[in-house]
Amino acid sequence: MTQEHYDIAVIGAGMAGASLAAECAPNARVLLLEAEERPGYHTTGRSAAFWEECYGGPAIVPLTLASGAYLRDGGFLKLRGAMTIGQSDDAGLIDAFVNRFSDTGATIERIGAVAMRARLPDLLPEWTEGVWQPHCSDIDVAALHQHYLALAARAGTRPLCRARIARIERNAERWAIADERGRSWQASAIVNAAGAWADEVARMAGARALGIQPLRRTVAQVETDPPTDPAAPLVLDINGRFYFKPESGRLWLSPHDETPSPAVDAAPEEIAIAEAIERYQQTVDAKVTRVERRWAGLRSFSPDRAPVYGWDPTVDGFFWFAGQGGFGIQTAPAAARLASQLLLDAPRDAMTAPLDAGLYRPGRFA
């Protein structure tokens, strides 16, 4: 039987794979493979759903800012604002945070107790140090993911689900790819957009694993007394011990955990939920009265916590689009545009011109 041949085979149809397929499909024949029954099952569908300019650190800010106009113009963002908070002993950490991002282009403002309580009246009195980010917004993650899947489909690429890869082989100038159901395809290039499974896919293709580590993040949807103000900001602890935000009339609450995990279907742990509730109740004058829903997702990071975009330095035709941690959704427009230009050897445009692709190259780990 003659195998179908594609220019690019993208492995993974979460936000990363879907956005890159959408960018490439108008100019290449793209195969989009997804191991699960539906795209985005493990991470995209479990995101805490915010666009925050400083999230991920200074190396990520250019990607976030470059993605902002696309997300706003597409109607995927709803303005909320974010407040990073600390106690008096944390003043130095708050100042260091402001200094760290002062030259990145992110809009941040050092604020004190009065301004903090104007934005969050129930904040307990010991929280006196803060940073305000006025542009932070909620992201409609499902709509953005479906947008990219629809763009890809319009150009002839639809995700092929339940296609868990079993074998990858390089034959001359082509890749031969087979899934666990015995189906097979050929492609000139493979894109590794497999998220938590990125190193596993790399090894199958004969490339060196880069140390992409999945970390579990837990989130709970809770009821509170008094009820959560739907206009309240996203609130983050300067020590990285919690964050919370209103969502659909409830509160989304996380202990900001980063627990190393194998690449699995992550499940929330009760201890993480309990820690999140305790930390929330030590922050505001409110009580959690009921946990309605809980979930966990895997956020996968490279060793230096910057994403990995580009051709593998030793294996021809193997392209990395991985290690995008918790910032992969808010940076999806610029990341996918940049990666498509690297893949197709296309010129930069206004969105990607400010980006330094060298910061994200796989060869930095050689």
Rank of each mutant, 00 (worst) to 15 (best):
R162L: 12
I8C: 03
T43M: 09
P233K: 04
R174K: 10
T352H: 02
G81P: 02
R158D: 13
A115I: 08
D103C: 11
R216L: 08
R364T: 00
D229R: 07
A143N: 11
V219F: 01
P333F: 05
S302F: 08
R167A: 11
T289P: 11
L93R: 14
R217A: 12
K245T: 03
S47A: 14
L160F: 13
I271Q: 15
A353R: 10
A189E: 10
V30W: 01
A357M: 00
R293D: 15
A16Q: 08
D199S: 10
E180R: 15
G297D: 11
E270R: 13
D179V: 05
V10M: 09
A91M: 13
L20D: 01
L123V: 03
V10D: 03
G240W: 05
M351F: 00
H147T: 11
G156K: 06
G325E: 06
L210A: 06
I273H: 02
V308I: 15
A69P: 09
L144S: 10
A350Y: 06
P255N: 04
G182P: 06
W197P: 01
L20C: 04
Y309K: 07
H42T: 05
W132E: 04
C161Q: 07
P134Q: 03
R80H: 09
C161S: 11
F97H: 05
E52N: 14
R279I: 06
A350D: 12
A194E: 07
Q186F: 09
H135T: 13
D73P: 05
R337C: 14
R305N: 14
V315Y: 03
C161I: 11
G57F: 03
A187H: 04
A350V: 03
L210F: 10
D316V: 11
T259L: 11
F321V: 00
A202Y: 01
R158K: 15
D73I: 09
G105M: 02
R167N: 12
V291E: 12
V222S: 06
S184I: 04
I94L: 06
T228K: 05
A334C: 09
L342E: 01
A336K: 02
A322L: 08
A96N: 10
G86M: 06
C24V: 08
A322M: 07
G182Q: 12
Q330E: 13
G40W: 00
W197F: 14
E247T: 10
A66V: 06
T289Q: 13
P230R: 09
L151A: 15
G326Y: 04
Y243S: 04
S300Y: 12
E52K: 11
Q341F: 06
V291F: 10
S188P: 00
A274H: 12
